[in-house]
Design a protein around this nucleic acid. Sequence first.
DNA 1: AAGAACATCAACCGCTACACT
DNA 2: GAGTGTAGCGGTTGATGTTCT
Length: 390
Amino acid sequence: MGRPPCCDKEGVKKGPWTPEEDILLVSYIQEHGPGNWRAVPTNTGLLRCSKSCRLRWTNYLRPGIKRGNFTDQEEKMIIHLQALLGNRWAAIASYLPQRTDNDIKNYWNTHLKKKISKSQSSDHHHHHHNSSRSSDNCFLSSPSSPENNHTISSSRGQWERRLQTDIHMAKQALCDALSTMDNTQKSTTSIFPDFMNSSTTSSPKKGLLLSTQKQCQTTTTTTTTTTTTSSSSSSSIYASSTENIARLLQGWSKNKTTCPKKEHSSSASTDNHNHHSTLERVDYDNGDEQKPKIDHVVFSNNQFSKNEAFQSLFGTIESTEDNSPYSDFSHQAVSPEASFFEQESKPCTTTLSVLEKWLFDDCSMQQHCGSQTQDHDLIDMPLQETADFV
DNA sequence: AAGAACATCAACCGCTACACT
DNA sequence: GAGTGTAGCGGTTGATGTTCT
């Protein structure tokens, strides 16, 4: 026994990642595929611990990640799921395939928690003066809001509620997976066009949902238009501004336009022709002082073009009218090249049509008639009844 | 204009479950 | 079965940006 530790604490770099480090990491993963994180720092020469590399990849560099503002639909979904699942961010993230658990967690802590508590306090105030139920706030009116959830939990037990939810989700996922096997276009008609079409999801860990979702991993998704917006625009620190990553990629693409597209390495690559390529210099046209000046990147064991690596990884990045730095990620996320990573890193997410309906019908229903039967129907649905979904 | 207060979010830390020997 | 390492998760921190006074 006695495997070496994943990293020695001394000499391990911490803090924000630089473009050079990102390139090294992405290129290595493009070549070898994600996984075996312990070997990544050694083989890339990165002075980072394996954990840090994995986190950087899963949260920021992995294709298919949508960044920027959350849509109302995403927001509502997070609120519902949080009420149902608690702070199981990875589980919640699995229903929002283009969002990372870290992103959702941050968004919850910085936005939604306040929003809900604010609504609750106002609702409480409203209740204090008027016993009638407020119907103008879907968060409060939702029976699955934390407030109501407390009642459910106390009467039934959180674990049981979660189990029921998982079972239901799993069955629904299986149902949808089977129904969409022959109809890959179906998912594009989802009422979640922004984020339900990705074939990626995190948390490769066990779980009912995962096991069923895997059945539709072969489903090919189509490119969708995203409604991403740029984040803080004036960050001077690379790692705090993901725009720079997009710029980096754009820089790659510009250099790449003259090169014929190579076959994408869709497996832990046998693509050895890259190994002796050299890296073209990256130049940006926006006068960004953070321009990476990388001419060659040499791995401990091989040397290959990062340009080609990115090309292979993300496909040809087109310049679009949309200046959103994330649009490139979003579009390329579903490129054939990226599909390798998507399939590797996240199982396919189904259309979840019933879930969608439940989540959003509820909100609209609450808004219009204040009914609260629908959520209870799902949450309190006996196990026997959930079996009817399949 | 300056600085204090607040908001945001990338990254780290510590824990746990699982895999491996 | 025990010991150890790894991957993943959730909580927390701290650097940076933004707004307020």
